[in-house]
Nucleic acid binder design. Structure first.
Length: 636
DNA sequence: GTTATTTCCT
């Protein structure tokens, strides 16, 4: 079988299907070398083989079926199709079904041809329909899948759970909730409510259609739940931001109370959950499990580990994972480059990029997003401009909105506001609000009111203005002392009812989240916290800290401003961190809004004076303070 | 016949 098949599949110019089937006949009893000789023989006697075939055709279809099942090339299947027609073999389901599977599914996946083949079959069975519906569920026209399903039912054929599974897949592709509900009803009416696999599919459909509660209901009604069902529930929870519950599920799986264990997919999703939550300890636990189960060979899991540790600001661990990998792909390199970039190791990120090229790994668009953000985070303007040019010239990558975003940030923060504006205007893609917002932030840093106003106009044009944009503009006016505009804008915001989000900072200690707002007095340890904050201010003043009056509150006099600034939520959270953790512990704070200049200075000095690493994530940036410096290199 | 595919500008 094998040598004959090999000859057939690789050398079809010499052999046709008839020869092949004859070879199969011989090679069951003849060694491969003889089969090869036979092939030579038939090459010379191409047209004199017919009489020999008649005996074969009456025999079992088994060699033909085996051949079909192992076909990987469409050309081979086309030959077989002709043979099937000539010999009236289409009505044999044992032949037509494997044929359709090969033609319709990957790797060949020729849907049009499959449909044509299907139409030639006299009375297609449910299995044939299923195969075609399955193929449609993976194609660009999933709608055809449920049309086939309808056709099948109109012909009086009864859909089995497999048909329904693939119909669900089709509905998933187009996010059809109504379709899902219909299939759900059919599942119940046909008595398939104990088919866990089918129900898992249905759950996935509900979850993807934003019907988390329906998905959960299906899950609850399942008679038994395997790891995959739990994984789908985890995905559903993550889509609905129930990230905390994902961690609970993982614990439940580990404890054995669910009767199934976490697999590699579970771990992958959990790493994402931990990254989102900033749950460092839990992430380490998942890492432990990955090692224990031997999943640490899986490149995708290691890549996620690198991303997670980078997000925690723990580049040592990220690097450990990186070093231990044997199969580093583009994603691996991109992950470590982005990790270094966001932690302020710009030059190391560029070093990693060069190393990657040396190893012969081709960068993709996301690699460049990482490397360009490294340049913008560290103020490596010239380097960034060179790499941006190389990207399209040398690697043929057309810059996307993210790349432009990095460049606007890079030029803008470096004070080259005009170049940044020119770059946006020259973009082939339509600038989005993020791009303009980036430039607005840069205008705020460099106090460029004229450009700032123009940028706001662009935001208004996009109908994308947010409260935060007005705050930026507000701060921009006040930073140059334009009180007239400040008052005007404040009035405008009041009239329009523009609500600014109150700032808050949170810090996690031993699994408990402590949240602070400006002037917060709700914490049980508030007295100690305020004492600690005073003490810190005293120490920092010795080191040269001067509270920056950002003039964000024009009605207050200088003394009052200083007072208010001292009690920004991030300062309270930092003071609590210093108070409640042993010396040297890294303090991690999540902030809902942009950190202000003063708090940035405060944290920077504190990281040196108190020898503490401070990591503050706000909605725009990741600040890693250590040894009196910040990863954003003061391109705040 | 089922889940997840990792890296991403403010």
């Amino acid at each position: 079988m094998t040598p004959a098949f090999h000859l057939f599949n690789s050398n079809r110019s010499y052999l046709n299907l008839r020869h092949y089937l004859r070879l199969c006949h011989y090679t069951t009893t003849t060694p491969p070398s003889i089969a090869k000789q036979l092939q030579e023989h038939h090459r010379h006697q191409h047209n004199r083989t017919k009489p020999l075939l008649s005996s074969l055709e009456s025999k079992s279809h088994q060699p033909l079926i085996s051949l079909i099942k192992s076909c990987t090339q469409k050309s081979s299947l086309l030959q077989i199709h002709g043979y099937l027609i000539r010999n009236s073999l289409l009505h044999y389901p044992t032949i037509s079904l494997p044929f359709l599977s090969r033609m319709a599914l990957s790797p060949i996946h020729d849907i049009a041809y499959s449909r044509q083949f299907f139409s030639q079959i006299p009375n297609p069975s449910v299995f044939l329909y299923n195969t075609l519906i399955r193929a449609y569920s993976m194609s660009n026209s999933p709608i055809e899948g449920f049309l086939m399903y309808q056709e099948m039912r109109e012909k009086g054929l009864r859909a089995d759970p497999v048909s329904l599974s693939f119909v669900i897949k089709c509905y998933i592709r187009v996010c059809s909730l109504i379709g899902g509900e219909q299939v759900h009803a059919r599942i119940l009416s046909d008595g398939h409510q104990s088919d866990s696999l089918l129900l898992t599919n249905l759950m996935d459909l509900y979850s993807l259609c934003d019907k988390g509660s329906e998905a959960c209901k299906v899950f609850d009604e399942m008679p038994q739940r395997d790891t995959i069902a739990w994984n789908v529930l985890i995905s559903c929870y993550m889509r609905n931001r129930r990230t905390r519950d994902v961690l609970i599920i993982f614990d439940g799986m580990l404890s054995g109370e669910f009767g199934c264990e976490p697999d590699d997919v579970t771990c992958l999703r959990l790493l994402q959950a931990c990254s989102n939550l900033g749950a460092l300890e839990f992430g380490e636990k998942v890492h432990g499990h990955i090692v224990e189960r031997g999943y640490d060979n899986a490149t995708n899991l290691c890549n996620s580990l690198i991303a997670m540790y980078s997000q925690f600001g723990n580049m040592d661990k990220a690097f450990d994972v990186f070093k231990g990998m044997h199969n580093k792909n583009v994603v691996t390199w991109s992950a470590i480059i982005s990790g270094l970039a966001m932690n302020g190791y710009g030059r190391e990120a560029i070093g990693a990029f060069e190393e990657m090229l040396k190893m012969g790994v081709l960068p993709d668009d996301l690699t460049f997003t990482g490397i360009l953000s490294a340049c913008s985070n560290c103020g490596l303007v010239d380097k960034g401009v060179v790499i941006f040019a190389r990207m399209s010239k040398e690697f043929g990558i057309v810059p996307n909105i993210h790349h432009y975003g990095c460049m606007v940030d890079l030029l803008g923060r470096a004070g080259q506001l005009h170049q940044a504006y020119q770059l946006i205007m020259s973009m082939r893609v339509k600038p989005d609000s993020t791009i303009w917002r980036t430039l607005l932030g840069a205008c705020r840093i460099h106090r460029n009111v004229i450009l700032g106003e123009r940028v706001v106009e662009h935001l208004i044009e996009l109908k994308a203005q947010e409260a935060g944009d007005y705050v930026l503009l507000f701060n921009l006016y006040s930073s140059v002392g334009n009180w007239e505009k400040v008052t005007e804008l404040r009035k405008f915001m009041k009239e329009k009812g523009i609500q600014t989000t109150p700032a808050s900072s949170s810090i996690e200690l031993k699994g408990k989240v402590h949240e602070f707002v400006v002037d917060d007095v709700s914490h049980p340890r508030k007295v100690e916290i305020y004492e600690m904050l005073d003490e810190i201010c005293k120490q920092l003043k010795i080191a040269g800290y001067v509270a920056e009056i950002t003039s964000e509150l024009p009605n207050l006099d200088a003394e009052e401003k200083k007072y208010v600034l001292s009690y920004h939520s991030e300062k309270l959270a930092i003071a609590f961190g210093v108070l409640a953790t042993p010396p040297g512990t890294t303090i991690r704070i999540a902030k809902n809004l942009r950190i202000c200049v003063d708090c940035h200075n405060f944290a920077k000095l504190l990281s040196g004076v108190y020898n503490r690493q401070v990591i503050i994530t706000d909605h725009t940036r990741f600040h890693h303070f250590r040894g009196g410096h910040c990863s954003c290199n003061d391109y705040w």
